[in-house]
């Protein structure tokens, strides 16, 4: 039977500037899905552009190549990754006028 963990890596945080999620170790897993759950959005032309990042050490991060479509409104969004070594996080860029997103980042790992 495979192992599985669903982790609420970031729980209902409000972000107004670029941010990164908590570094998670995932070396045991062979597949991952990041979920971004947006509950509230405010500001004009508020846009959240999020990409998956990997790392050699959990401290220095580089782009993995997987990105979410731009987010403008509340909802559930997901991105899949399957080749990532040990470390995983998402990095979000926020643009707009006085933008704010109340969101959670969940990571589902299986392997």
């Amino acid at each position: 039977m495979k192992n599985f963990q669903a982790s609420a890596v970031e729980r209902r945080i409000t972000v107004t500037h670029d941010f990164a999620s908590h570094p998670m170790e995932a070396g045991w897993a062979s597949e991952a899905i990041f979920f971004i759950i947006v509950e509230e959005v405010s500001g004009a032309q508020a846009t959240l552009e999020t990409s998956v990042e990997i790392s050699a050490d959990g401290i220095n991060w580089i782009d993995e190549g997987t990105s979410f479509a731009a987010i403008h409104s509340p909802g559930h969004y997901a991105a899949k990754v399957s080749h990532f070594g040990n470390w995983l996080r998402v990095h979000g860029k926020i643009t707009g006028t006085n933008p704010a997103f109340k969101l959670s980042v969940h990571l589902h790992l299986k392997g």
Binding site: N3, S7, I13, M24, E25, G27, W28, D57
Partner: peptide, 15 residues
């Protein structure tokens, strides 16, 4: 108590 850091399965890997 909503923001305590997450637990995880770790291989204890370092730079």
């Amino acid at each position: 108590k909503t923001q305590w850091g997450p637990i995880m399965l770790s291989s204890a890997s370092f730079r």
